[in-house]
Amino acid sequence: MRISVVLPAHNETGNIGRLVEETYTVLPRDLLQEVIVVDDCSDDGTREEVLALRPRYRSLRYLRHGTRAGQSAALRTGIRASSAPVIAMMDGDAQNDPADIPNLVAKLGEPGSDGPALIGGLRADRKDTGSKRLASRAANWIRDAVLKDDCPDTGCGIKVYWREAFMRLPFFSTMHRYLPVLFLTYGYRVDYVPVNDRPRMAGKSKYTNFGRALIGLYDLFGVTWLRKRTAVPPVAEDSAEMGEMSERETAA
């Protein structure tokens, strides 16, 4: 399965270029189709850092938002521009390890099959500060109590999934935090694989524990409402399939 790697980034000078180079180095050529960096209106050297790599990596694509719209919007912009059937997403801060991607892809079902449509990363050895780890555990507990989606690590940025499945999902400004439960809501299977976690080497996080908590509670109510209002019934009869069966019987 060929993949498009999508990297949302905002003010990630010192991280994004290193991550792009590492991605091209560790991923097999027969797996990687392209890398798409979506710059969410950075005002540092993110643009120059990425464009300096274009002569070396012809399948590297750089997209820039005209106004800042957030990580989910950047992710969606990159996926809409992608050409492979499978998406691998990572955070632009280089805390995700691209060497984990082949392991995630290996557990992913073929697009259109009954296998898992999303494989999420599960950080086994967190490198964040103690306060962030504590906040993450609390958020995971509250989220699972409300959504019951059995997602063990909601904040892990590395995931692989079917492009066509993502494009079916409703868009909202923080949907990247709820991809597993949205996939489940739309009838897809999800699974998880342990992945590496690395410390941030440059810049600073765009989120605070308090800010993330406030947005998380607001979104939790919205996603709960969305799940209750979403119905994806199985198709019990398809006239097109019946027509194909009739043609085969006539030919026989």
Score class of each variant (00 low, 15 high):
Val190Asn: 08
Arg177Asn: 02
Val181Met: 01
Ala236Asp: 10
Gly216Glu: 07
Gly211Thr: 07
Lys228Arg: 06
Arg177Asp: 14
Lys206Leu: 04
Thr174Phe: 07
Asp238Thr: 04
Tyr192Pro: 05
Ser173Leu: 01
Thr174Lys: 02
Glu237Lys: 10
Arg200Ala: 00
Gly243Asn: 14
Phe183Ala: 02
Arg229Gln: 14
Met201Ser: 02
Arg212Asn: 06
Asp191Asn: 14
Leu184Asp: 14
Met245His: 01
Gly222Val: 10
Phe221Leu: 14
Ser239Trp: 15
Phe210Trp: 08
Tyr178Asn: 09
Tyr207Gln: 09
Val193Lys: 08
Arg227Gln: 12
Arg200Gly: 01
Asp219Gly: 00
Leu184Ala: 02
Ala202Tyr: 15
Val235Met: 10
Tyr207Pro: 00
Ala236Asn: 09
Ala202Ser: 08
Asp191Tyr: 11
Tyr188Pro: 11
Pro234Tyr: 03
Ser239Asn: 08
Met201Cys: 03
Phe171Met: 06
Leu214Gly: 04
Leu184His: 02
Ala236Met: 15
Ala213Met: 12
Lys206Gly: 10
Leu217Ile: 14
Phe210Ile: 12
Leu184Tyr: 11
Phe183Gln: 12
Tyr218Asp: 14
Ala231Asp: 15
Phe171Gln: 08
Lys228Cys: 12
Arg200Tyr: 09
Glu247Phe: 04
Val232Gln: 15
Leu217Trp: 11
Leu220Glu: 10
Glu244Pro: 00
Phe221Tyr: 11
Pro233Phe: 02
Asn209Ser: 02
Ala231Ile: 13
Arg198Thr: 00
Pro180Asp: 00
Gly243Gln: 15
Gly222Leu: 10
Ala213Pro: 12
Pro194Gly: 11
Gly187Asp: 13
Asn209Asp: 07
Asn196Arg: 10
Lys206Ala: 03
Gly203Ile: 03
Leu220Lys: 01
Met175Pro: 12
Ser205Phe: 04
Ser205Gly: 06
Lys204Glu: 13
Phe172Val: 01
Lys204Asn: 04
Met175Cys: 15
Arg198His: 09
Gly216Phe: 13
Tyr188Phe: 12
Thr174Trp: 03
Tyr188Gln: 03
Thr208Glu: 04
